[in-house]
Amino acid sequence: MDITPTNQVLAVITTDRDRVGGSAPIFYVDSFSELEKVAVYLSRVFMAAVHDLGHGVYIIVKH
């Protein structure tokens, strides 16, 4: 059986260290372009969707 977690935050990508915390893997990046790039890479790895929470915080969620 293949078990994949769905509707869970698989990763958080952010430009702002102060805004995030918690148990999901967090990726800190320096710029918006890097944010987008890392988000694409991670979404392809997880085969999941990228959501924008605003203020430079992206999350990867599998649906």
Partner: peptide, 17 residues
């Protein structure tokens, strides 16, 4: 913003530009 709106209905949050 990041929310895809179709015919006045919010459909989903699309993160990537």
């Amino acid at each position: 913003g990041p929310i895809l709106v179709v015919g006045g209905v919010s459909v989903m949050n699309v993160g990537l530009t």
